[in-house]
Design a protein around this nucleic acid. Structure first.
Lengths: 242, 242
DNA sequence: TCAGCGGAGTGGTCGGACCACTATGGCTCC
DNA sequence: GGAGCCATAGTGGTCCGACCACTCCGCTGA
């Protein structure tokens, strides 16, 4: 593997725009976008990459670390650096950070986005869900209703909606919803919401969503999901007004 | 500013989970999520932070760089490191990376997500848009129809939809749509689409969206926007089938 | 034949040095 | 006395070299 990834680049002085690390990030991204680096492929070593781009290993490591947290690259200790599969889950994992660091009015906005996507995903799921997928949904629905432990309820609640999103058949949408429902995000909002005795209402809403799925009724599913998220949204709005 | 941010942390041996850099990232994120670091606030120097967490400056720099590309921190050369305002635009800038690195079927999924959000945003805009905002939209619409330069058309096309998204009143949604419409993403898809003489159709669709905005008719706006994005979506689907 | 064991190669961490830039304060000059 | 310049301390940016921890693979010996 002597092939240099940067062959053909202008040999003149570097463009001098931004930091060298930022430049390295852009160059690696360009290599992937341009198809010279395929998903799953192994990159040259940090030392070689740094030499090829004419920067120090330290700067190259910062670039690699940045692309790692973005879900573009994956570093395996002792083995090498690899391009991820670039699937929705890999790249949208950082979406959870947004949810975790948002507060106040932005939480309402996030819930509004979730309401829109979740209702559509649930409608799609109603049309496409298979018996096996439906059984999985029902498993979490039953488990949710069989316990009083808030932690367990939250876990099955998450899984309930995750299965539905998966049944919608759009991995990208499912990955975004996963981020919008990240554990810490929901734990923060759910805690206060459920403390006000919303368990019964939540169960009713989940049951309504389930009925719509069984009936393969997209419009009913859309309405039920929108109402479900909307309830939390309105509660949070009221909290912020105080 | 002698106050240490890490006071109160367990003094025992480090948790030993993951790399030290990853740990540093989580700790800084926790400081922000916990409210000990406010938006806009300045952090201690890299050297001090590294000393407080007991790691080297190199590792701390990687952590800071990672949080910088995520839009959580901002480093100003010669001045210091600051927490961003943590607004939707800051945190969702990375969404463009997803769009730029996605190919094949995932592009269709992204367009589907955009169709859902864009149609809702346009509907909201129809209900809420102000005369001033409407004038801005019309400016880009006129500019788009007054030129034949594809680059200029694309720029005003982006601005057209950006203004509408802004008028919807949900910054988070607007930021996501901005990522889904990032310049390189649209340039890749638009190029082929417009080459097939879709200019006339695009103009008709934009006109329909504009009419709905003027009439403050959310449902018409939703339908027009969904059809607009849907056209591209269907074209891309057909391309992939070949 | 294969289990065990090395060594080479790789990412992970560290410490130090120096450069580039910013901000602050005092100083000069008007 | 005030405005503008400028030296300087402090900060992030970059580079280097060393060593550690881990993985992988080929060699060795039973």
């Amino acid at each position: 593997m002597d092939e240099t990834l940067t062959q053909g680049a202008q040999p003149g002085p570097a463009p001098q725009k931004g930091t060298v690390t930022q430049r390295a990030i852009e160059q690696i991204k360009a290599l992937i976008a341009g198809g010279r680096l395929e998903p799953g492929q192994r990159l040259p070593t940090e030392r070689d990459l740094a030499a090829q781009l004419g920067i120090s290993r330290s700067s190259m490591r910062e670039a690699i670390r940045a692309l790692t947290v973005l879900g573009v690259l994956e570093a395996r200790h002792g083995s090498g650096i690899y391009v991820t599969q670039l699937e929705a889950g890999d790249l949208l994992e950082t979406f959870g950070v947004v949810a975790d660091l948002s507060r106040g009015p932005r939480l309402v906005e996030l819930l509004e986005v979730r309401r829109i996507l979740e209702s559509t995903a649930t409608a799609l799921a109603a049309a496409r869900i298979t018996p096996a997928q439906l059984a999985e949904v029902e498993k979490h629905l039953a488990a949710m209703n069989a316990t009083d432990d808030p932690e367990e309820i939250l876990a099955h609640d998450l899984a309930f909606h995750r299965e539905i999103a998966a049944a919608a058949g759009n991995d990208t949408m499912a990955a975004i919803l996963e981020g919008l429902s990240s554990r810490t995000f929901r734990a923060r909002v759910w805690r206060g919401y459920q403390e006000e005795g919303a368990f019964a209402r939540t169960r009713r809403e989940h049951a309504a969503i389930h009925r719509a799925l069984v009936a393969h009724d997209p419009e009913a599913a859309r309405a039920a999901a929108a109402a479900h998220v909307g309830e939390v949204e309105q509660w949070l709005r009221a909290q912020l007004d105080r």
